[in-house]
Design a protein around this nucleic acid. Structure first.
Lengths: 295, 295
DNA sequence: AGATGTTTGCAACAAATAAATCATTTAAAT
DNA sequence: ATTTAAATGATTTATTTGTTGCAAACATCT
């Protein structure tokens, strides 16, 4: 599916020598070869977030006579790819004959893919929307997820922080995680994430919060989860996988969707908050801005 | 590999009602859908042996607003065809034209679902297997993922801990996260997770580990990620979503699959470790027993 | 700090494009 | 054979495209 491969490899090879804008353009080209073939240069530039001129410069940088050649190569690759469908199937069959490790992996991934697709059912969407609405109305959002759910809780909190929302993560060293609830009020909401087996700590803290009048909203795995009784809103997501462990992927996906919905509620405020975060982090040199180091 | 199928059928159905020139144009469109998507109208007209105006007339004849729509439909078909069987999922996405709140959610989830399905491509599976193999050979696995990647890193580490593997999470309060590397040896492997924007801390620690001879294995988002240069094995997973943020869901899914593969390598040992963990946790009253525990 | 060489954004340009308009041809019907 | 309507071709027009030139911003190195 790659554009002549040699071109693709060349882009990768020369990537380090490019300027920041050129890298941004090149990265988009690498990640969206079809678009390069199918839409105009100006449109590609817009999608890549660079100036139109940068695309021209990229082509020249790669030693091509102009952007048209860049598109032509991608178009040729796409032409091949379209009837290479048979080849792709053949390839998959070949791989399938091994009946080995990659079978397990493929099976798992397809299972997860199906689970996410299932979350699009009307009932799920309704619950998602209701949950987002409830969270939106909160003065503060306390996020609680222990043990395996920690990953989801933390990520939700992290994104909310970038949004400038008043998110508080109920976790911390030395078992002080619950202390943040000291000043919780009925205007606040707690988002609880917990899947089977349910950590006692989670349930205790959630109960405590509820006693203080805090609204409880939860992401859990079953109608018979102990969280259901505590919560105003509950979202159910599957955790079954054909491995030894329960999967957290659907739960993470749901939390990401929730973040997006909350962000969408007020786009301008979101954009402002993100810009603020951007500035802050760049002052701290948090991210590697420039070209990857060499050794 | 047909353009939206319905359009193709429509062309066939109305073919008999067309004039000679229109038929000639239509016939070329049917036989060379890729060209329609990839080259200009005038070029298609030249290839089809008709006047440019005829192509416009064909589009109008089919009830489309203009030739651009004809091209757009063919382009969409080509886009879908290019990434194989994820197309099925993507198709359902296109159907939703109303953009309500729950439509946003549905759109995101289906997009994620498609991305996971795409990870089943042969190349990805090969990389997964190679990564798992490399991790398996390690004496100790250091897990590193800062900022947004923290969730994935932590979850991987958490699961590995249950497996009894010697996993060390490089994170901790007071910026002491890297200290665990003090006694790292060339027999160890570090799993690094980082997506754009790449945290400088991640790159520095990874470089440090590499200097000590530790093998680096990474999950990242692009061929041109700075991690590629440092790593023995790299797995690429998409992070694009149509929200404000990059998605971590595919990365988490991959880390879960990796855990499973590692677990599968020695099933009996895995089962033993899990049972041990179960006992330990039940002695600590970690989980609520009010609900049936997992088997 | 000051000078130098890149990098980047903007605006202007010529070429090419799709669509609209008008003129000519063709075919059928009276 | 003449009229009429449709089909085709040629021409024009308003956009849009890829490219280039230039000045401001930027980093780099004495």
């Amino acid at each position: 599916m790659q554009p002549s491969d040699s071109l693709r490899e060349q882009i990768i090879a020369q990537y380090d020598a490019m300027s920041a804008q050129l890298q941004q353009a090149a990265r988009y080209v690498l990640e969206h070869p079809e678009e390069v073939a199918l839409v105009s240069m100006r449109e590609v530039a817009r999608l890549a977030g660079v100036q139109p001129a940068t695309m021209t410069r990229l082509a020249k940088f790669l030693g091509l006579p102009g952007y048209d050649e860049l598109r032509a190569q991608h178009a040729a690759a796409l032409r091949q790819g379209s009837d290479g469908f048979a080849a792709k199937v053949r390839q998959r069959v070949d791989e399938g004959s091994e009946r080995g490790v990659s079978d397990t992996a493929s099976h798992m991934l397809q299972g997860l893919s199906a689970q996410l697709a299932k979350l699009c059912e009307p009932d799920s969407l309704r619950r998602l929307e209701a949950t987002a609405t409830r969270l939106r109305s909160a003065r503060k959002v306390y996020v609680l997820g222990l043990r395996s759910s920690h990953a989801v809780a933390w990520h939700f909190h992290y994104v909310m922080t970038l949004l400038g929302e008043r998110s508080v993560h109920l976790d911390g060293p030395g078992g002080t995680g619950g202390d943040a609830l000291i000043r919780a009020t009925p205007e606040d909401v707690m988002l609880v994430i917990s899947i089977k087996p349910y950590a006692t700590g989670t349930l205790e803290l959630a109960q405590l919060a509820k006693d203080k009048g805090v609204g409880i909203v939860s992401i859990t795995d079953s109608e018979v989860s102990p969280l259901v009784a505590l919560s105003e809103q509950t979202f159910f997501c599957p955790t079954e996988s054909d491995s030894f462990f329960h999967t957290l992927t659907p739960a993470l996906a749901v939390s990401e969707v929730l973040c997006s919905l909350l962000a969408e509620f007020d786009r301008s405020k979101t954009l402002e908050a993100l810009q603020q975060a951007d500035e802050h982090l760049s002052h701290l040199n948090t991210y590697s801005t420039a070209i990857p180091r060499r050794d």
